[in-house]
Design a protein around this nucleic acid. Structure first.
Lengths: 182, 182
DNA sequence: ACCTTAACGCAAATTATTAGCGTTAAGGTG
DNA sequence: CACCTTAACGCTAATAATTTGCGTTAAGGT
C-alpha cells in the first residue's frame, strides 16, 4: 500500500486531547522550565513513550499545544466599520499575547518545528483577511493585510518578545492610526 | 561579608570562554535539537556538572552564547550619509539574521531567561543610536530610533521568526523608504 | 603570606529518554 | 459482518541526561 495515512478517530484522538489538556493544566500553575514529559504523561494517563513517539520532544509538544490553543474558534467581532473592527481585534490580540502565558505561547511556537510558526502566523493573517472581506463587502477602502502585519502586528510582537516596551492600548491605537494614514 | 561577588579572572573566565567556543563549534555542524550538555562539556574539557551549576540548563546556555555572539564588536560602517548608513546596517542585519544560524540565535535568545532578549534588543538600539548621533553631527535630519525599530526592524524580525516571507534586500529597502517618508 | 569562599571536579543517586517487542484497535476489503 | 493490515499504544529494559553531596582548587581580599 503506497498511501500512508494518519489515524484520526477514536483512541488516537482521545489521547491527543488528554495530553493537550494535561499540558494546559500544568502550564497554569508552574514554570515551563519545570514541566517534564513523564509529568505530563502521568496527568494524561498515558505512558511517556507514547508522547516521545508521537511528538518527538517537549519543545514540539508545547508548540503543538500552543498552536492548538491559538487556533481561532470564531471570527473577530463585527463592529460595523473597518476601523473599529481593526481596533477591537488588535487590542484583544495585544492583550492576550502580552500576558505571561501569551508570551510563553509565542516562544513555544517559535522553538517548535518551523511548521508551528507558519501556522500561528497564518491564523493572524486569516483574521485580517476576514476583516478585509468585510470591509470590501461594506464598500469601504481596501485593507492591505501585508501592510497591517508590517505596521501593526510586527511591532507589537517584537516588543512582547524582546520585552523592551509594553504594548499599551494607546501604543496600539497609534500603530493603527499610522497604518490607516498609509 | 555582606557583598556577594562574581569571580571574573583566571579559571572562571577561561572556562566560560571554552564552553562558549565549544557551543559555537557544535552549532556549526549539527542541529541544536541534537546538542546535549555532556557533549558540550566533553568538547570544552569540563565536567557537565560545572555547566549545569553555572548556566542552569541548555536553553540558558544557548541564550548566553547567542547574546555574546550578537554583541557588536565594532560600530556600523560610516558611509557618509544617514540614508546609506541605515541601508548598509539594515541589509547586513537582515542578511545575518535570516540565515538558519541567525534565526536559531534569535529563538535561543527568546527561549532563554528574559534578560537575554532585552540585551539582544539593546544591541540593535545601540547601533541605531550610533547612526543617530552621526546624523546629528553631520547636521542631517533627526533619526527616530523607536520609529526605526517599529517600521524596519520589527517587520524584518517578524518575518524571519514566523517564516512567512523572505526579507529580501528589495523588501528591506522598501521598509527604509517608508521609514524615511514618515 | 594567609584566609575566606566561589567555582570546580568527581562520583553516586536520581530522573529522563530511547528502543525492543508484544498488544490493541482504526480503517479498509471481500 | 468477519477478516486483514498496520498505525499507535503499553510495558520494560537499556541508555543517557540531570541533580546532589562532598572534597579540592584558586580568586580576591586582608
Amino acid at each position: 500500500m503506497a498511501k500512508e495515512m494518519i489515524r484520526q478517530g477514536g483512541r488516537s484522538a482521545r489521547i491527543q486531547g488528554e495530553v493537550h489538556r494535561a499540558v494546559q493544566d500544568l502550564l497554569t500553575g508552574m514554570d515551563r522550565a519545570d514541566i517534564t514529559v513523564p509529568m505530563i504523561a502521568e496527568k494524561a494517563g498515558v505512558t511517556p513513550s507514547t508522547i516521545y513517539r508521537r511528538w518527538g520532544d517537549l519543545a514540539d509538544l508545547l508548540a503543538d499545544v500552543a498552536v492548538a490553543h491559538m487556533r481561532p474558534i470564531s471570527d473577530p467581532d463585527d463592529t460595523g466599520a473597518m476601523k473599529s473592527d481593526l481596533e477591537a481585534f488588535i487590542l484583544q490580540y495585544a492583550e492576550e499575547m502580552s500576558s505571561k502565558v501569551g508570551r510563553d505561547m509565542l516562544t513555544d511556537v517559535l522553538s517548535g518545528g518551523n511548521t508551528a510558526a507558519i501556522k500561528c502566523c497564518g491564523f493572524t493573517t486569516q483574521h485580517l483577511e476576514t476583516l478585509r472581506a468585510r470591509a470590501a463587502a461594506r464598500g469601504e477602502a481596501d485593507l492591505d493585510v501585508e501592510l497591517a502585519i508590517d505596521l501593526i502586528i510586527a511591532p507589537i510582537v517584537y516588543h512582547i518578545l524582546f520585552g523592551d516596551r509594553e504594548p499599551s492600548a494607546d501604543y496600539c491605537r497609534g500603530l493603527i492610526a499610522r497604518f490607516l494614514k498609509a
